[in-house]
Design a protein around this nucleic acid. Structure first.
Lengths: 177, 177
DNA sequence: TATATTTGCAAGTGATTACTCACTATTATG
DNA sequence: CATAATAGTGAGTAATCACTTGCAAATATA
């Protein structure tokens, strides 16, 4: 990856997040990246190729997000760390805009790669099993579904209080006092 | 509303759901509706006006969805009916495509009207209070957030089993055996 | 029935779009 | 150092887009 290639991706990331994929002209991306428009097509073939690069990066970063969770042995910690994922994707402005874009693209492109969360779902399932939940698999699936809902509110409803929601969740699962 | 006006809305509903708002040309809408392209602008001023009509219809239909829930007195029934809302929006193909579009537009337009669910949230909150939940307000908010997650999975993940999820939820809340 | 209003059409139009192409500059390799 | 490959430019281009305009048909109103 050359320096200019990264600049293109950074600019596209920023503009797609703000304006959406279809609504962002390649000319604008090139301008913000400080490169010629033709270079985008030299490196990424077409606009969809640029999008693909961004989606792939999203997939990689997502795996990294829960990498340490699947290595965890303590059941309660697995669940607690999973819940706190929602917090880490909003740690700073850039992260938030990055993850918001990933969700936005899910809807725009009509994709939901269930395989990407499978390892996390398995870890959660085992954790719930250890904690004697009635149906550990469903409980795991439902918690991940709740996290999807949390993301929806977090990214679309400016008034949503994530901290409060996470706190309540942790109490509900008896993870904290 | 004239006959052709309705045909335009129906076509737009269908195409926006399939291809997205920005990606659907007005020429295509006109063609599918069997009218001239100019008529769209005569009736809806511009493309955004057409979108507005659709979003407004979504708001109205959403209120109708939970109209009978807020009139319910039995706490358990309020919660159960709320959970079953997820099922009624997938009753048939047209409904499913309609509601999927509404969610899609939320992300494309970056809007989340929390006011629209407020009456339902209040009803739920009262129900949870009656059932002696620790923090009824948070519990209500969290259940609605879970429903947002359920919608995400339902509309994007083809393998998601809604029936199963709803069943498990109902048991979790002690609404059924 | 006369006339005003609304509904509808078809053929534009200028702006914008993703993408190409002919070319130059830079870097890697033998 | 020569040459091949890659990185980069920027002026095009055909297609597509939302929207306009001038006019006709249908409908409402007096």
């Amino acid at each position: 990856m050359t320096e200019k290639q990264e600049k293109i991706i950074t600019a596209a990331l920023d503009l797609f997040a703000k304006e959406g994929f279809r609504n962002t002209p390649t000319s604008k991306i090139a301008k913000q990246a400080g490169v010629s428009e033709g270079l985008i097509f030299r490196h990424f073939t077409n606009k969809d190729g640029l999008l693909e690069a961004i989606v792939n990066e999203g997939g990689e970063r997502f795996k990294m997000l829960y990498a340490d969770i699947v290595l965890e042995n303590d059941a309660k910690k697995i669940i607690l760390k999973t819940i706190h994922m929602a917090k880490s994707i909003t740690a700073n402005k850039e992260d938030m805009s990055f993850w918001k874009l990933q969700y936005k693209l899910k809807w725009e492109l009509d994709i939901y790669d269930a395989k990407k969360i499978e390892p996390l779902e398995r870890s959660l399932s085992m954790a719930f099993e250890e904690l004697k939940f009635r149906d550990p698999k469903m409980e795991a699936k439902l918690l991940l579904t709740l996290l999807d809902g949390l993301a929806t509110r977090l990214f679309l409803d400016a008034d949503f209080d994530l901290e409060e929601a996470i706190d309540y969740l942790a109490k509900k699962y008896n993870l904290i006092k």
